[in-house]
């Protein structure tokens, strides 16, 4: 254990509360930026809060013979997993808990999110929802491996799977310089796992909203909030893994990390909202045939650089 974790520094309960609060704020920021990009600046800061309050008050709709247990389980798991993935993202230079396998933890939360979204599609016993669920499975499977390789590439260069070690290894040079492919694939893969922007086919209009078509009230709020929190957590993780985390001149470290996270969110939303929704049957093969070899090649380049002592 090279450094203290948040839980050790502040005590478990305050640290967990702080991480949950950071997650909620990140989710609100993502939703606000999204709103600002889609419909101009007016009310972008207030709108996510207002629609959240409306969803909280809205009465639940239900369907005929839903699998209520799995439906609720999936819907609740989405925000919980998004917050759990935030547990290994450095906040103020420290993670909530630090293990020797932080990057794999982040990846495992994504995989569980994948299963949870399928449950959200399966639960209501409705054709559009389950179609969206199957689309998400195909899409997630195609982007899982490139995303995994992108994460591992950062760990490879740092010689550690611990997030704080990866941040510390970027003192001299941000990893994005030597692994631009991994950075882009990581951010795109995170968007795919949040079925957001160009990867929103599981909730697309051609299947009447897909996975989210039968969600209402607090269930919809949980899933939408989970998506936004996961996007925010992924942006913070991208800033930590590839953009040097808190490193930067003049300003304190946490502020730099926040600025970089906001920049990733802004870039992601600004570009993502300008692309059309990609049809899985026309893009899933790209994940397998192009992105997997490309990220493997990126890992190979980084591995050779590690052997030459470039990162030492």
């Amino acid at each position: 254990m090279p450094e203290q974790t948040l839980a050790e520094a502040w005590g478990s309960a305050p640290a967990v509360l702080a991480v949950v609060a950071v997650g909620l704020v990140l989710g609100l920021v993502v939703a606000g930026v999204d709103r600002a990009v889609v419909s101009g600046g007016s009310g972008a800061a207030v709108e996510p809060i207002r629609s959240s309050a409306r969803l909280l008050l809205e009465q639940r709709r239900t369907t005929l013979a839903p699998d209520r247990l799995l439906w609720r389980l999936g819907g609740t798991a989405v925000p919980v997993l998004a917050l759990l993935s935030l547990a290994v993202v450095p906040i103020g230079g420290r993670t909530l808990w630090s293990t020797s396998a932080d990057l794999v933890w982040f990846n495992a939360m994504e995989a569980l999110l994948w299963a949870a979204v399928w449950l959200v599609g399966w639960g209501p016993n409705a054709v559009h929802a389950v179609t969206g669920g199957y689309r998400f499975l195909a899409q997630g499977l195609a982007y899982e491996l490139p995303l995994m390789f992108a994460l591992i590439t950062a760990g490879l260069a740092a010689g550690s799977l611990r997030t704080t070690d990866v941040v510390a290894a970027q003192q001299d040079l941000w990893f994005v310089v030597t692994m631009p492919v991994a950075f882009v694939v990581f951010v795109a893969g995170a968007a795919a796992f949040a079925f957001w922007g160009p990867f929103a086919a599981p909730t697309a209009a051609d299947i009447a909203g897909g996975v989210s078509s039968e969600l209402s009230g607090v269930d919809r709020l949980l899933v939408e909030a989970g998506r936004a929190i996961f996007l925010g957590a992924s942006a913070a993780m991208a800033a930590a893994l590839f953009l040097g985390g808190g490193s930067g001149p003049w300003l304190p470290g946490p502020l730099w990390h926040l600025l970089k996270t906001l920049a990733v969110v802004a870039a992601l939303v600004w570009i993502g909202r300008r692309l059309p929704v990609l049809r899985p049957d026309r893009t899933v093969e790209v994940g397998w045939m192009v992105l997997v070899p490309l990220t493997l090649l990126q890992a190979l380049v980084v591995a050779v650089l590690v052997l030459t002592g470039f990162y030492a």
Binding site: T99, S100, A101, V104, W105, N107, A108, A111, L112, W114, A115, W118, Y134, L137, G140, L141, E144, L161
Partner: peptide, 21 residues
């Protein structure tokens, strides 16, 4: 055994999600 734990969760989740289909 953090790595084994996390990798078990990761692989089994992917496996079950594919298996259910």
């Amino acid at each position: 055994l953090v790595y084994l734990a996390v990798v078990t969760a990761l692989m089994m989740t992917i496996e079950m999600a594919i298996m259910v289909v």
